[in-house]
Amino acid sequence: MKIRTLTPQDLDAASTVCLAAFHHSVAPMLCAEGIATFQSVAAPEAFRERMNKDTTMLVAEADGEVFGVAELREGHHLSMLFVRPDKQEQGIGRALLEELLNHAGSDTVTVKASLTSVSAYENYGFEITGEVGQSAGLTYQPMELVIL
């Protein structure tokens, strides 16, 4: 497995990975608005737009196949961490997160975790920092990780 920076050639694959993982574990808990919101955020065009901003995007790949995606915005907010469902629980998410933390510009990284991913983030060392929230149909748990 190799962790590397996302390239324009990866946009479709990154979108596919995020949508597959989302539909597998998050979408069943959301309303139609939340599903539509995420589909728009995970679309290839949306990734392309964010590539030109203060964002670090990484992919996990092997043999030319992308199966994990991570995104850190403004050096402190983890906005995407998805692994294809058939590749989950193999340490890929942790490897992506660890590499992404090398790009952090702050000693604290935040995430608005989907409710189904809270325990995974706790395993990565994140702690709950507030009440469950909702925005554009997406339900999330605010969490943060202090980088030592």
Rank of each mutant, 00 (worst) to 15 (best):
K2Y: 05
I3L: 06
R4M: 02
Q9K: 14
Q9T: 09
L11I: 08
D12T: 01
D12V: 05
D12L: 12
D12G: 04
D12E: 13
A13P: 02
A13W: 11
T16L: 12
V17S: 03
V17D: 01
C18W: 14
A20P: 11
H23S: 08
H24P: 03
H24G: 04
M29E: 00
C31P: 00
C31N: 14
E33A: 12
I35R: 15
T37V: 08
T37Q: 13
F38G: 00
F38A: 07
Q39D: 15
V41A: 11
V41Y: 13
P44G: 10
P44L: 09
F47S: 09
F47N: 08
E49M: 08
R50W: 10
K53F: 00
K53Y: 00
T55I: 01
T55R: 05
T56S: 13
L58F: 05
V59T: 07
A60S: 09
A60H: 06
V66G: 02
F67V: 00
V69A: 02
A70Y: 05
E71F: 02
L72F: 03
G75M: 10
G75H: 12
G75Q: 08
G75D: 09
H76T: 10
H76Y: 12
L78A: 13
L78R: 14
S79Q: 14
M80D: 03
L81D: 09
L81W: 14
V83L: 10
R84D: 11
K87E: 00
Q88T: 05
Q88H: 08
E89S: 03
E89K: 04
E89P: 00
A95M: 09
A95F: 03
A95L: 08
L97H: 03
E99V: 02
E99T: 05
N102Q: 15
N102G: 15
A104F: 12
G105D: 02
S106M: 11
D107Y: 08
D107A: 07
V109E: 06
V109A: 10
V111A: 11
V111C: 11
V111K: 11
K112C: 03
K112R: 15
K112A: 05
K112H: 10
S114C: 06
S114K: 07
L115Q: 15
L115D: 01
S117T: 15
V118M: 05
S119H: 08
S119Y: 04
S119G: 01
A120R: 02
G125C: 02
F126W: 12
F126Y: 14
I128P: 07
T129D: 04
G130D: 01
G130C: 06
G130H: 04
G133M: 05
A136K: 15
A136C: 10
T139M: 13
Y140Q: 12
Q141G: 07
Q141R: 14
P142D: 10
V146N: 11
I147C: 09
